[in-house]
Amino acid sequence: MAASAPLYTWQQPDWPQLRYDAAAASPALLRARELKGEVSGMARAIGLEGLVEAEQELWMQEAVATAAIEGERLELAAVRSSVMRRLGTGDDTGPTDRHVDGLVEVIYDATTNFDQPLDADRLCRWQSALFPGGTTGIRRIAVGRYRDHADPMQIVSGLPGREVVHYTAPPSSSVAREMDAFLAWFAQTQRAGMDGIARAAIAHLWFETIHPFEDGNGRVGRAVADMALAQDTGASTRLFSLSRQLLVDRKGYYDALSKGQSGGMDVTAFVQWFAQAFGQACIASSQVIQSSLERSRFWSRHARYALNERQRLLLCRLLEAGDGGFLGGLNVEKYLKMVRVSKATATRDLSDLVRNGMLHTVGQGKALRYYVTVPGWTHGVADDSGLQGGAAA
């Protein structure tokens, strides 16, 4: 009986000679590089000081998204606190979570220490940081070392007894050898002038195909891609959140990985998909940076006005919600749900902000709504002729 054809890429006789068609992938790679250049240009225009808020937001997005892809929901306050401590932009009064801190540390090391060699020890320390208690849930797992269990390493979904096997990785006995080949390629291609975005795509696909750890492969593999992209940029400033875009198209991400792991050595299709995803991540980053710049300009324009804490918190919330992000606009009743003051005090707070040009109003009577005044923001209001109250100059 003839032997069955290899099911996975790693079972092919010419594994791991992954390659891609540079000409076919060129349009997607060029477009991704153009979008990356636009983000970098915005960052240079703003300057490092102006980027602090945007970079903090992108760090938070990356941490939350890379965990969410694996079905983990992190507490946003703990993520914000951890990111601020790591970046040195806040104090130590926020909530702490060892699990969150470990994840942020991995992302930080991959992005900021991109010029340091990537070796087995470093990868094992990353994986160990993700599981500070040595468990996933209540199940003990191997941490700080490659997997060594005899059972097949499989990605499975479905209820017990009706499982669907989506992928089977190389056996544990070959992981060390497989990783030696991968790490040698990663070091060699950094010096060989390979397209940096294509290199990040192949590095991620290759790492996920080996699946070297008992758990945490997705998060570590995305950190590897982040490191490759940082090496391509040559700077440690985080200007995008790749994981956020992968989460947005989670099904597409898993489908692209699956196809890349079950075909031949030509992974052009995965490189194209990855380049498009990275380009979308750059577009999203441009929006984050632009929003951060708009908030910074807003505070600069109105720096001369004294605000009470209620007013400052309200404006922060409206600015963070963005253009049209505060559904239905703000009225006195909504404001009263945020603060513990009398209706008269709430009305006075809002009137002061209108008089100072920080808010403007639309409608009258019970239909009166308050909106933060930022040039270019329409808040979904089609006719600006109905604006009342003070508008910022």
Rank of each mutant, 00 (worst) to 15 (best):
S128R: 15
L58A: 03
D151I: 06
A23C: 12
S157T: 14
G264F: 09
K251R: 14
Y370I: 02
A306R: 13
A382R: 12
G279L: 08
P132G: 05
A393S: 10
D119C: 09
Y335G: 03
V143P: 06
T189P: 00
Q56G: 14
T345N: 03
A277W: 08
L76W: 04
L246Q: 08
T268W: 03
R31M: 15
R147C: 00
Y371H: 11
L307K: 00
I69M: 06
Q11Y: 04
V39N: 04
V332P: 01
A120V: 09
L315T: 01
L318V: 09
A391F: 14
G218Q: 04
Y371A: 01
D121A: 15
F274W: 10
R369M: 00
L350K: 00
G71C: 07
M153W: 07
T209F: 03
V52M: 14
A198Q: 06
K36M: 14
S262Q: 15
R125Q: 15
Q56K: 10
G322I: 09
G47E: 07
T136R: 14
G90T: 12
D14Q: 13
D215K: 10
A2H: 08
G252K: 04
S292D: 10
T361Q: 12
K337D: 14
P13C: 09
M179H: 07
G37T: 09
H302D: 00
F114Q: 00
V374I: 10
S236T: 13
G390F: 07
E55P: 00
A275R: 04
A321E: 11
V220C: 06
L307C: 02
S4A: 15
S26L: 13
T112W: 10
A235Y: 04
L242V: 07
G90A: 14
R85A: 03
T96F: 07
L330S: 02
N356T: 15
S82Y: 07
V341T: 11
S128K: 15
A45M: 12
A200L: 00
V104L: 04
T361M: 13
D91F: 07
G221A: 09
F186Y: 15
V83H: 00
K259S: 13
Q245C: 04
I107N: 06
I283A: 11
G386Y: 09
R199M: 10
Q11P: 00
V156I: 15
R317A: 12
E57T: 10
T268D: 09
L293M: 12
C316F: 11
V372M: 03
S4E: 11
T233H: 10
Q388D: 09
